[in-house]
Design a protein around this nucleic acid. Structure first.
Length: 461
RNA sequence: UCCCUGAUAGCUCAAUCGGCAGAGCGGGUGGCUGUUAACCACUAGGUUGUAGGUUCAAGUCCUACUCAGGGAGCCA
């Protein structure tokens, strides 16, 4: 007999004579003569209530069926006379698949702190909150692919291993098969001559450059995969391994880029609102009371778009005493970004046309010669959710910008090649998937929206 | 990396001016004929993060370290 998902049983239209349920016991309540089991199989937030009678054939193994144990139950789905649920299962068979010693099983039937649950990341998906989180994460990932597929984008698998010695997006993790203290290389060879690739290799910090190459062939592409930054960032918004969504569009400018970013964030938000209602409700109830109102705003309201220069003016005339001074040419600080989207506009804000000095070399130089066609999408509480730009498609300008930044032209021969053969205006951005999940759930620590977080000094599990 | 705060039972936290180490939850045992964070009774459970110092006496004061959380920088 095949098992039925609890999600389907709880949505059943009629009673069923014989069903099989497999799952983990969340709690057991004993009464004289019978016990109630709350069983969860991960298919949904809700548990299934199972009644095991002392006189019934299922009673034998009940003593070992404690919190955390895995069980297989055969029984009848019947209407529940109790108040808490419509359906329950009356067990006629109970099989203990895997016991859980109650003395040592760490999950109690009460609320645990996130800090404690991080120390047992292998068990935390068995809690309501983390089960809900990772169902939402899965659903949001599906929505990413659906969104781009519906718009004719192609999914690009950009490489994880990279030989680009400077991608300009942060410190990189080195990948090597060399011993920790390799013997000196022969005269003239570099230190990586004997390494696996014969040159220095790293984990990617961005798939953008590769996405640009493919956008110049397939038109519109996106990457969606893990990304690595070896920055010693100790904040609730940074992880050394995180997932990024990076679309890249040929024949597109900054305005198209802003449209796409806004559409994407809205589509993902709508998708989880429509498909993860029960799981989201948990976060609205226990994590952030304003979550639903906030998500409705993000899903429906047009985002504010303003040039960096206007943002600076608003900050300067706000009358607010900021810790960091605001002036054209200085990057916006966290406090400035928060003021703009949380207090001034009270909704997502897209700031564009930043001073060239504070942005990357590949961003397209505007006609004013002092700003580049960059954009950041800022959302309340999370800050920078999206960073992107129209790319510099003019060979001579890009060449100049590379040299201005003290970088070597040889390293970018293939990137420059795209500007030599059929160069077109193109644009793209990166969206931090974990940051989206933080926004969608109200969770304030990135370590709680990724299954096994990697941060400085932490590589458990 | 810098600044701030914290570390006491398995978990969450108390402990007054430096003076006997406590509770709730969880666990165990027993009770209860429909519970739903079940309920009632009893019970076990501690090198107070580590190392040093001050003191008749340190969970409490001092120093260093370790770890955690928050804020900042870097960014997505």
């Amino acid at each position: 007999m095949k098992r039925t998902l609890i999600k389907n049983l709880l949505n059943s239209a009629a009673a069923l004579n014989r069903v099989r349920v497999s799952g983990w016991v969340r709690t057991r309540r004993d009464s004289k003569g019978f016990s109630f089991l709350e069983v969860n199989d991960g298919s949904c937030l809700k548990n299934l209530q199972v009644i095991v009678e002392e006189t019934g054939p299922a009673f034998g193994q009940l003593a070992a069926v404690t919190t955390g144990a895995a069980v297989e139950i055969d029984g009848a789905l019947v209407e529940s006379p109790g108040a808490g649920q419509k359906w329950e299962v009356r067990a006629i068979g109970l099989r203990l698949l895997g016991g859980a010693d109650p003395e040592t099983f760490p999950l109690q039937k009460k609320r645990h702190t996130d800090e404690f649950l991080r120390t047992i990341a292998h068990l935390r998906p068995r809690t309501n909150k983390y089960g809900a989180m990772f169902r939402i994460r899965s659903e949001a990932a599906f929505a990413v692919h659906r969104f781009f597929r519906e718009r004719g984008f192609h999914y690009l698998h950009s490489p994880i291993l990279t030989g680009s010695d400077c991608e300009g997006a942060g410190e990189m993790f080195r990948v090597t098969t060399l011993p920790l203290h390799p013997p000196a290389s022969p005269e003239g060879d570099g230190p990586f001559a004997d390494d696996f690739f014969g040159k220095e290799a790293s984990l990617t910090v961005s798939g953008q450059l590769e996405a640009e190459l493919f956008a110049s062939a397939l038109g519109s592409v996106y990457t969606f995969g893990p990304t690595f930054r070896a920055e010693n960032s100790n904040t609730p918004r940074h992880a050394a391994e995180f997932w990024m969504i990076e679309p890249e569009m040929a024949f597109a400018d900054l305005s198209d880029n802003m449209d796409l970013a806004e559409d994407l964030v809205k589509a993902l938000t709508v998708h989880v609102l429509e498909n993860c209602r029960e799981d989201l409700d948990l976060f609205a109830k226990f994590v952030d009371k304003q979550l639903m109102a906030s998500l409705e705003t993000i899903a429906a309201q047009p985002y504010e778009r303003l040039p960096y220069a206007d943002a600076v003016d608003i900050l300067k005339t706000s009358g607010r005493a900021f810790e960091f001074p605001v002036d054209f040419g200085a990057d916006l600080q966290t406090e400035h970004e928060r003021f703009l989207c949380e207090e001034h506009f009270k909704k997502p804000v897209i700031v564009y046309n930043y001073p060239r000095e504070i942005k990357a070399f590949y961003m397209r130089l505007n006609d004013d010669d002092r700003t580049v066609a960059a954009m950041d999408l800022l959302v309340p509480r999370v800050g920078e959710l999206v960073g992107g730009s129209q790319r510099e498609e003019r060979y001579d300008v890009l060449e100049r910008r590379i040299l201005e930044n003290g970088m070597k032209l040889e390293s970018y021969w293939w990137y420059l090649d795209i500007r030599r053969f059929g160069s077109v205006p193109h644009a793209g951005f990166g969206l931090g998937f974990e940051r989206f999940l933080m926004m969608a759930t109200g969770v304030t620590n990135i370590r709680d929206v990724i299954p096994f977080p990697r941060t400085p000094k932490h590589l458990e599990f």
